[in-house]
Amino acid sequence: MTDQSAPAVSDAGGRGPAAPALLRAHSPAVSAARARRWGSFYYAEQVLRVMKGYGWTIVMYGVGQPVAYLFAMGVGLATLVDSQAAFGGVSYLAFIAPALLISAAVMTAANEFTFPVMDGFKWRRVYYGPHASPLTPEQIASGHIMAVTLRFLLQSAIYFVVVALFGASPSGWGWVSVLVATLAGLSFGLPLMAYAASIKEDKGQFAMVMRFIVTPLFLFSGTFFPLDSLPLAVQWIGWISPIWHGTELGRVFSYGYEEPPLLTIAHIVFLVGLAVAGWMLTKRQFVRRLGQ
């Protein structure tokens, strides 16, 4: 979808007679109609183009890191943690694999929905360019979200393949956890995006989010041990954590973890609800802030 193949040199004045006929833009009415229909995709395309610039970081961060965890925890720690009974009758590796998948998506969300949003509104004001084009603030927000969603999917899919190669996803439904991870990323990321869009001055809020929200959620969401093995006093962290809801769902799909069906539905409702609420708030912030 890029231009790399096209020659960048233009012959000043030496253009063939046929060329000017090609060089006509379609009418503003067509531009507007297309933008109204496809605007979100157009902006997503732009975000992906920028992401491509740091593609390797994405792969290393999104895949390399959880794989390292998987290896250290699942293979190393698992030799010490040998009581399969405590982990629903599966290997420790199979137990933590969905948790690491979900956590990786949430951590990616914590990056992609914070600094780039600040960049859009404040630092380099990248949202203001497209805002002057036929695109609407809602489309800029949703284009950004679509591109990050694609990153969630890609990163989770590669990760899932690695997990499957480790033999840590015994169920045939394991691939669904790729979608669950994407949902969990949005569920955590969209409310965060709304918050990021409301920040006028950078006072290190995002570092605080990482330290005081993401890290505790990562540790206390039934990631490395079942949530109910924690004292009740901290169990609530899991209940409000997209990582926990996502992880439990992921476990259901990747090794048939048994839980009441109502609870499974509750996980989905929680994740979808948070994502939708986050999306509405984000949209409102974008419209308000760009339309000033």
């Binding site: 231009d3 096209a6 020659p7 960048a8 040199v9 233009s10 060329a19 090609l22 060089l23 006509r24 833009a25 379609h26 067509v30 531009s31 109609a33 297309r34 933008a35 496809w38 605007g39 157009y42 902006y43 395309e45 732009q46 183009r49 360019g129 497209p130 084009s133 036929p134 695109l135």
Partner: peptide, 19 residues
């Protein structure tokens, strides 16, 4: 990239960008 926001096709945008 900016031309894409107007739904302009790459076949138009490449020569136009050079111009």
């Amino acid at each position: 990239v900016y031309g894409r926001y107007f739904g302009l096709p790459m076949s138009y945008l490449r020569p136009k960008a050079d111009e």
